[in-house]
């Protein structure tokens, strides 16, 4: 199941629905990735980023217990960490500055996340 493009990558998973977060984390681990989290809140995610851990990519649920994930997205943008939104919302509800940010509809899988880090792998 190990995949070269994703093996060893450190993927931050921010998703407040336990079952989804757990499934995705399991799938990523099965694919050989290292999962950061999963975490269910913006605060917990910021703690991980702030701890100086290497983050290769991130998938972010938009709505975390009623809190929007956008401040975290801005931090990732600043750190040039590629990320995607995991969302049930349609695109119109996202702020315009994230117009180019990839959006994954639930339920997501490893194949989707590979598209996110594909360019990284090619470049590095």
């Amino acid at each position: 199941m190990a995949d070269r493009s994703i093996a060893g990558r450190r993927i931050l998973v921010v998703e407040d629905e336990y079952l989804l977060a757990d499934d995705l984390a399991q799938e990523l681990r099965d694919a050989g990735a290292e999962v950061l989290g999963p975490v269910a809140t913006v605060g917990d995610a910021q703690t991980i980023i702030g701890s100086g851990e290497q983050v290769d990519a991130a998938v972010l649920d938009v709505n975390l217990r009623g809190e929007m994930v956008f401040p975290l997205a801005d931090e990732l943008t600043a750190r040039r960490v590629p990320f995607a939104f995991i969302t049930g919302y349609d695109s119109t509800t996202l702020p315009p500055r994230f117009a180019d940010t990839p959006r994954f509809a639930k339920p997501i899988n490893v194949a989707l996340i590979k598209t996110l880090i594909g360019p990284l792998a090619a470049g590095g």
Partner: peptide, 24 residues
Amino acid sequence: QAVLVAELQHRTRNLMAVVRSIMT
């Protein structure tokens, strides 16, 4: 209404994901 529609989409997708997870 826009918020509710978005919320409904969100919940529906979540629900489907939950169903899938339960099934697994």
